[in-house]
Simulated scan of single mutants.
Amino acid sequence: MSFKIERGLFRFEFTDHHAILGIPVDASKSEVRKRYLKIARRLHPDSNRSASEVDKEQANQLLSKLVNPAYEQLSQDKGEYLLSLKHLGKRLATEGGKLPVSGQTAKRLAQAGASLDNLYKSSVKNLASQQYESLAQALDTIGEISEFNLIYLRLKGGEKIGQPSLPQETTNQKQPTESKPTSPPAASPLEKYLRRAEGYLAKNNFASAVLELREALKLDPNSGSCHSLLGYAYLKQNQAAMARVHINKALQLNPREERALKCKKFIENMAQKNSGGKSKVAPKSEGTQPPDKSGGGLFGGIFGGKKK
């Protein structure tokens, strides 16, 4: 029996274990186990005594080659798989063009707007209820659910991957009489990349910061803050040439960009020291990296102290 599926996330050479089990991408471990046991009972040979030998063999193939591996992946340590799923969601969110979907429900889901979460979960649930009732249609149903997952990931940008699903709101809940304070606006995808990058820089994890900032530049190639942070990260890794490119770009976009100005000043100071001349050569203990003390020095205040 061939298990080739060319719809939804499978189009990106990604095995969609959530679609195989018929569950949302933010399903909890308890939901994964409950769903697996239901499918396993349906496909197990002892549950199909009246079925033909061909159907029994087909059910066994689905169980052993698709369902069991999906359950093993999602019930154990899911870190690597969920990270790949989250990165795929981010990638899909940044890509333009028409969504590669064919089903009518999938097309409605792509235009759901504010009702996306509810429509997505109800659509997955409806298909899952009949997913393995017809073994001949099982692969088509998996592909259709994977289309739902593709749309959801693209519209959400992978935000909810690895997070527990929230309970549904009920319509009969009592509304508070007092007005709630207005919540701050949600951070944009670019701001999220910048925040993560600043967190990595504060921990001296410069390589991870560079990866986040490169993704941020895909969203906004003309972000002065992003270029200045990237210049700083390269400078801390002794990649002066790359640092200079992004620092100059940041200053082109904003001549008053504080981080970029400090980085440029540091590079100029190091160039004077290394050129010999009348300037003293810096002691070996100073190295070539910019000082990173938050309380003072050339870069004081970038990640600590008061921000101007």
Rank of each mutant, 00 (worst) to 15 (best):
G301A: 08
A202S: 11
N269M: 10
R195C: 03
E31Y: 07
S279E: 06
A197I: 05
S47G: 14
T141S: 13
L166M: 06
A27T: 02
A243S: 10
N126M: 15
P24T: 09
A136C: 02
L201P: 03
Y120G: 03
E133F: 01
K307L: 11
K264F: 01
V25K: 08
G96L: 07
R108G: 08
A202G: 09
A114I: 03
K307M: 05
R7S: 06
L119I: 09
A19G: 05
L219D: 02
R244P: 01
F148L: 00
S183E: 11
P24L: 12
E80A: 15
T171M: 13
S208A: 15
Q252P: 02
H44N: 11
I142M: 14
C226R: 05
L127W: 15
A187S: 13
A128Q: 07
E191F: 02
D26G: 01
E212Q: 09
E95M: 14
P255W: 00
V245R: 08
H87Q: 12
N126T: 15
S208T: 11
A250I: 09
E31C: 11
K203T: 08
E268K: 10
E13G: 04
S179A: 13
Q163L: 15
L298V: 12
C263K: 06
T170W: 12
V25F: 05
A243N: 03
K306A: 01
G157E: 05
L62S: 06
R42S: 09
L9N: 00
N274V: 01
T105M: 15
L251C: 01
S188E: 02
L217C: 10
G295I: 10
Y120R: 11
E159R: 01
R49C: 00
L37H: 13
D46P: 04
E6H: 09
T171V: 15
R196I: 00
Q173T: 10
P167W: 02
A19C: 11
D26P: 07
K107I: 13
K38I: 00
A233C: 13
P291E: 09
L217K: 07
E133Q: 09
R244I: 04
Q168H: 08
L92D: 02
A241P: 08
S225Q: 15
K264N: 08
G158M: 09
G277H: 14
G277P: 07
H44S: 14
G276T: 03
K86P: 11
P290L: 04
C226N: 09
L166K: 06
K98T: 09
L37E: 14
D117C: 08
K218D: 14
I39R: 07
A128G: 13
I23V: 15
F12R: 14
L235Q: 06
M270F: 02
N254L: 11
E31H: 13
L62V: 03
